[in-house]
Design a binder for these strands. Structure first.
Lengths: 306, 306
DNA sequence: CTGAAAGCGCTAACAA
DNA sequence: TTGTTAGCGCTTTCAG
């Protein structure tokens, strides 16, 4: 649109200062003290010329890209209900990151081992990995070059932070009904949620939502029992096939408007997950490497409503 | 992990050539002819040193970032069912772009006018805008700096390509039943889908899914009619509140596994939308500006099953 | 066929 | 308090 691109040099010229000064002013550099007067001149010139900083050059010059990767591991076929769950989280991450000045590169891959280079190519400052499967990736993650935060996946590697829902607490609390409890969930790549469920319900009462289907039959043959369904969309599916008084749906937002208003629900907030993950990222980026011991953060379930 | 970063200079050193030669080889430059011998030496050295190109430097040097923006316009409150619909599309875009060597920056904003700078900051090669609302943005779009493709939004500006579902055809075909037809859809920001629907059903039979709810009542009071529901998740909701023999659900993928297997469905393929959008992008990037007249591409509905 | 060197826009010593 | 300048890693004329 506007002929050539406006650079710091243009501003420097316009304001009658050097481009270093422009850089100092525009970056609110603490180290250099700039007179209020020149500061104003610079801002004014920048505004007038509609200066937009070039992140590419910035990144190259100071090794901070303010770009982060959000990598969704698509291990297997992914059903729409699972994708919805992720998107809620991705959206929360993106929004939170944007608010603090980071842009988000989205990558869903079924082959992290190959695609891992993206972070390096693009100089990510950090990356979040969703639904990482344990086995294939212990190796891959070690080849990573930037802080890595694992969300909803358990690697068990003391090198990485993990943020995950506290499904253990959830199932412990919800699963003990006298009528017996079944669990319905997506086909997560990480087996830790899976393992939590199995610790509290027998395997025959655990339904994993896979392409073949079979949810209808599963629910039909468990009429007397109570059920826990993980995921809002999956909950919506279950709701219409099972008496909802005996259903608990695990949702990611407090207004899970897809569900029938009086379906019982437990919240494991996507927003909280994203928030924690971002908090950790900031810590990692501020600290010297090795300052803090990575750990697993668990997002506690919250029982909603009555 | 690996001490310092491997650069072209390292490869040049290792292979005993200059770094320009390395660049020629690694970019399969047509202009310069390189002997097969040096070519091999370079590849070999690159492999051995585990060279990963630095896109940041590349971008700075040749003004092509191979980064594109996918911008979701969150005009109003967005219900999860709507977000799901978008994610399907975003995912298709990301996958398609990645396949041809582009990375995707995701941005959902409720204030495009302010956030528009991102494309410039990051030197996007192109950007896709989802669900653009007409009014607020005619101005904004003009301040854009890179090819812009509008998906599922109608701007009516001959300057921009648009890709959208052919809802006009869909409603024309589906809406004429003797029992009367109602339509249920999300609260899209673009009013063109909206307008199409209204052209074929009276306003009182058009339900827009907004936070307040009211879908139950709407459906309950239209028992005798036939219904068209736009969106798979919304369809799932409707299915359990309305006789599904009289429902047609507009879905984005041919295996819309959320729905009951014999719910009637029409496909407006997200994959096709993404594919078209990407095709247009490639055209725009290859051509000299102004070579081709922007146009609106409509993705035809496909009636699935019986 | 290959290399030297300028430059992309910005940052950060180091000088002044 | 401000300016000079040397890079960051890569591309790309232009000479050899």
């Amino acid at each position: 649109m506007d002929g050539k691109k406006v650079t710091m040099k243009d501003i420097a010229l316009e304001a009658g200062v050097s481009s270093a000064t422009v850089s100092y002013v525009l970056n609110y550099s603490e180290k250099e003290k700039i007179s209020h007067e020149t500061r104003l001149k610079v801002f004014e010139a920048a505004r007038r010329l509609r200066y937009v900083p070039d992140m590419t050059a910035k990144t190259l010059a100071n090794k901070k890209s303010r770009l982060v990767g959000v990598i969704v591991n698509l291990g297997r076929v992914n059903l729409p209900s699972k994708l919805c769950q992720y998107y809620e989280l991705i959206d929360a991450l993106q929004a939170g990151l944007y608010r603090i000045g980071y842009d988000t590169v989205l990558l869903s891959t079924s082959n992290l081992n190959e695609d891992i280079q993206i972070g390096q190519r693009r100089s990510f400052d950090a990356a979040f990995i969703l639904d990482l499967d344990t086995a294939a990736l212990r190796e891959t993650t070690h080849r990573f070059f930037c802080p890595l935060i694992i969300i909803d996946g358990h690697l068990g590697d003391p090198l990485f932070y993990e943020v995950t829902g506290d499904y253990e607490a959830l199932f412990a609390q919800e699963a003990g009904s006298p009528e017996g409890t079944f669990v319905v969930m997506e086909d997560y790549s990480s087996d830790s949620i899976y393992a939590s469920a199995r610790r509290h319900v027998p395997p025959e009462h655990l339904f994993i939502n896979r392409p073949g289907g079979g949810l209808d039959e599963f629910l039909a043959s468990r009429q007397g029992m109570r059920g826990i369904v993980v995921g809002e969309v999956l909950g919506l599916q279950a709701e219409s096939r099972f008496p909802r008084e005996r259903l608990t749906v695990v949702v990611g937002q407090d207004d899970a408007s897809l569900l029938h208003p009086d379906t019982r629900r437990v919240l494991i907030a996507s927003g909280a997950k994203a928030g924690e993950a971002i908090r950790i990222m900031r810590g990692l980026l501020a600290l010297e490497p090795g300052d803090e011991e990575p750990q697993t953060i668990r997002i506690a379930p919250v029982w909603l409503g009555k």
